[in-house]
């Protein structure tokens, strides 16, 4: 049996779950997802090796989506997750929060794999889930 595939190997590695960014050798800014040109200084990044991002983040804001376009099961939780180490904010699903607590802003979260919307699609994408306060993976 082969390992489950990432929905986008250029962006996400499944084992262990890792987001792939690119750090500009010219200006030092980390971009996610990776780009051909640095959006800050336009340096060429095609040949630059991918940089793994920290799997630990903090919820900056979140919403429970209850109506979505066809083919996307609802409800689901979307959040801006801040990675303080890289000073990077990214949009992601949040999983494992069960019944939503009144306010998740500031909650520590860590990167995990998650299934696609289409149950026929056995690739994996990324999400963040709650970590116990203060614990580290």
């Amino acid at each position: 049996m082969t390992a489950p595939q990432s929905f986008d190997p250029a962006v996400f590695r499944t084992e262990p779950p890792t987001l792939l960014a690119v750090r500009c050798p010219e200006c030092g800014v980390t971009s996610f997802p990776r780009r051909e040109l640095c959006p800050y200084c336009t340096a060429e990044l095609v040949e630059v090796e991918a940089t793994p991002l920290s799997p630990q983040g903090v919820v900056y804001s979140y919403t429970v989506v209850r109506q979505a376009p066809e083919g996307v099961a609802t409800p689901y939780v979307l959040a801006y997750v801040d990675l303080p180490e890289e000073e990077l904010r990214l949009l992601s699903r949040l999983v494992g929060f069960g019944d939503m607590t009144p306010d998740l802003i500031g909650s520590p979260v860590r990167l995990v794999t998650a299934p696609m919307d289409d149950p026929e699609d056995d690739r994996l994408r990324y999400a963040f889930e709650a970590t116990a306060q203060g614990a580290s993976a």
């Binding site: 919403t63 989506v65 689901y76 979307l78 699903r93 802003i105 919307d117």
Partner: peptide, 16 residues
Amino acid sequence: AMGFIFAAGHALSARR
């Protein structure tokens, strides 16, 4: 690909 819709973007703004 993450399921972003414009309503979600504004909800994230409202919550914050």
